[in-house]
Simulated assay, not measured.
Amino acid sequence: MKKTVILVAFVAGLSFTAKAQYKVVTTRPPMGWMSWFPFIDKIDEKKIMEVADAMVKSGLRDAGYKLVQLDDGWMAANRDAQGRQYADTARFPHGMKFLADYVHARGLKIGIYSSNGMKTCAGYPGSYDHEETDAKTYAGWGIDYLKYDACGEKEKHTDRELHTRMSKALQATGRPIMFEICIFSSGETHLWGAEIADMWRTGGDIVKFIERTPEVTYKNWYTNLNQVVGKENYAGNGHWNDPDNLIVDYPRNNKQTYEEQKAQFSLWAVVSAPLILGNDVRSMSGATKAILMNKEIIAIDQDAATTPGARLLTDDKREIWVKRLKDGSKAIVLFNKQDTDATLTLNFKDIGAVEKVKIRDLWAHQDKGLFSRSYSAKVASHGVTMIKLKEVK
C-alpha cells in the first residue's frame, strides 16, 4: 500500500491572496455549458440558440448554469477589412451581437473563444497582435466570458505576456468579461493566474484529440483531478483552478458508469472547480439531470466561503477530500479507487472533528443522524459517497 498523504497546507488553513488588483467578475466558480465536446468546431447559430432554449426548458439555468460558451470554430476564416474577427456568415447569418442578445434575453450569459497566437487550435484567426481590437469587438457584441487558448505562432512571446495583454485589453473596455487562461501545457499558471484572470486551466485537456473519438473513462477526469492537488491555496475568492470541463454524459464513446460520473461531479464541487457542461443539453436523460441538477452538490461548489477543498488522504484503495463551508460544516468526499464495491470509513479524528457529528448524505438527500468517532458507507467501484458533516458540541 502506498504511503498516506496529508496536505499540510489544507490542515493549516492557509489561503492565497492575489498580488495584483485584477477586478474579478464573479465571486463563485462559473457554471455553464461549452460547445467543444458535443459539436467540436461544427457550431452554428441554430445549434447555439437551441442550446440556450434547452438550458432554460430543462431547468439548468435555474440550477445555476448561466453561461453558454462558443468554443473554437465560431470565426470566419479571415479577419475583415478593418482587421476584426467576425462570425462565419454562413453558419452565423445574423452575427454575434444578434446571438448574444438572444442568449441574454433568456437570462443567460454568452462566452466566446480565441487564442493568443496567430491561429487558434482549429486554425481560425487568433488574437495575436489584435488584443485591443478583439477585446473592444467582444465588448461591443455583449460578450460575458472569454476562454483564451495558447495555440498558434506568437513570435517567441511568452504565453504569460500575451495573456496579460488580453487581460488588460478586456479590463480597459469597461465591460465585465470573465477571463480564463487556457495554457494546457503549463503546470505553473496557478502561480500567477490570479493576477490577470478569473480562472485558469491546471493541466491538459480532459479528453484529448476528441475528433478521433477516443474511449472516455473515469481515468480521464481522475488524471485531471490530480493536476489540482497542491494548487488549492492559489484559488478562491474569485479566482479558480479549472481541471477542465465535466464529462458527465460525454456524447461519444463514453465508457463511464453512472457512479463514475457522479464521482466527477462530486469531486469537481469539492475543489470549487467551474462546473462547465460538455454534453448535448438538448437531449438529456433523467439520470443525467439527476447528477447535473443535484442542488446540494451544486451548493457545495458555490459555497459562500469560496474556499476550495483539498485531498486529505490517499492510498491504493481510497481518497478522502475535505472542504470547509461557510456555516462551519465540512463537505467530505470518500472516493473508492478499487475495481469493486467497498466499504469506506471516515475517522473523525483525521479531519480534526469532535467525537460526535451530524451527517447528511448529499446524494441520497437524507439526514443520516448522529455518529461518534467514525462513519462508514458502502461505495461503488470508482464511485463516491458525499456527505455534509456538522460537529455537535
Rank of each mutant, 00 (worst) to 15 (best):
L146V: 15
V229Y: 14
T173D: 07
R160A: 03
V228C: 14
Y145C: 08
E153N: 02
T189G: 02
D205S: 10
H157F: 09
L170H: 09
K208N: 01
T217C: 06
V229I: 15
D205K: 06
H163A: 05
W200Q: 11
E232V: 01
I206S: 03
I177R: 00
K147Q: 02
V228G: 00
F179L: 09
I143F: 02
R175M: 05
K147G: 11
T189I: 11
W221Q: 09
I177S: 04
V229L: 15
R201Y: 15
G174E: 06
V229P: 09
G230L: 04
R160S: 00
Y234R: 00
G152H: 04
F179W: 11
V207R: 00
K156E: 12
G193R: 09
Q227A: 08
A172T: 03
Y234Q: 04
E155I: 03
F184W: 14
I183C: 06
N220H: 10
A169E: 07
K154E: 03
E161R: 00
G193C: 07
E161G: 00
T223A: 10
A194H: 01
A172E: 06
T164L: 10
E180P: 00
L225P: 00
I206W: 07
G187C: 00
R201C: 10
T202A: 12
A235G: 04
R212C: 05
E232F: 13
N220L: 02
K168V: 05
R160V: 08
V229R: 15
K168D: 07
I210H: 02
V229K: 13
G187M: 10
I210L: 14
V228E: 13
E153R: 09
E211M: 06
G187L: 08
G203C: 05
E155D: 13
K156I: 00
C151M: 00
Q227F: 02
A169D: 07
S185D: 10
G203H: 07
E155K: 11
N226R: 15
